[in-house]
């Protein structure tokens, strides 16, 4: 999935991410503990690279250059090798993303049931194309392969949560709910 983020926006988001230590720097004790637990399932630590990226991203939202370096140091996997994995897998983000990632299913069943119309609606509502993040930094829209819920098409996943049998008004409700949630929450 290519990213269409504007360079200025990347800068703003990287800056805001730097302000808060949790987005960068060495791995935290919690992250290390989670990685160690996964690593115990494999003969050697080098196999756990992708899972480490996934775990750390869960805490930091995306994987910065600093973060790759930190994981590399911890697991003793060369940066280039980790980078090759990080850039290969769609769910690992090497650029900043919003607080809420919308994974819109674009596969055959959802297409037959009108996912293009939903995408257009999201694009108009949030002023973002797939791969972009909304100006308020809340939403990133991504297209995703089949989410495996085809009898309830069209569907999308918001974060880790599935939303099924969607139409435009359901999308509006979802967006409003998330906007309100982030407005009420103290800024992070």
């Amino acid at each position: 999935m290519s990213s269409l983020l504007e360079p200025e926006l990347i800068e703003v988001m990287e800056h805001s991410n730097r302000d808060s230590d949790k987005f960068s720097g060495p791995l935290t004790a919690e992250e290390k503990e989670e990685i160690d637990r996964e690593a115990s399932h494999y003969e050697n630590k080098s196999s756990v690279g992708l899972e480490a990226l996934r775990i750390v991203q869960k805490h930091r939202r995306w994987i910065s250059d600093d973060t790759i370096q930190a994981i590399s140091n911890y697991l003793d996997i060369p940066v280039a090798e980790l980078e090759s994995v990080a850039t290969y897998f769609q769910l690992i983000f090497r650029q900043p993303v919003g607080k809420e990632v919308i994974y819109l299913c674009k596969s055959a069943s959802c297409w037959v049931m009108g996912c293009d119309r939903l995408q257009k609606h999201i694009t108009e509502t949030l002023a973002i194309e797939p791969g972009q993040t909304s100006a308020d930094g809340i939403f990133t829209l991504l297209e995703t392969p089949c989410l495996g819920d085809c009898d309830k098409a069209p569907v999308l996943m918001l974060g880790e949560e599935m939303h099924r049998n969607l139409d435009e008004s359901a999308i509006d409700d979802l967006i409003d709910k998330k906007k309100k949630y982030h407005a009420d929450k103290s800024p992070d």
Binding site: S107, A108, S109, P145, C146, G148, D149, C150, D151
Partner: peptide
Amino acid sequence: DEMEPGTFKDR
């Protein structure tokens, strides 16, 4: 790794 378009049985 169920990801074949239109496939929703393993889930």
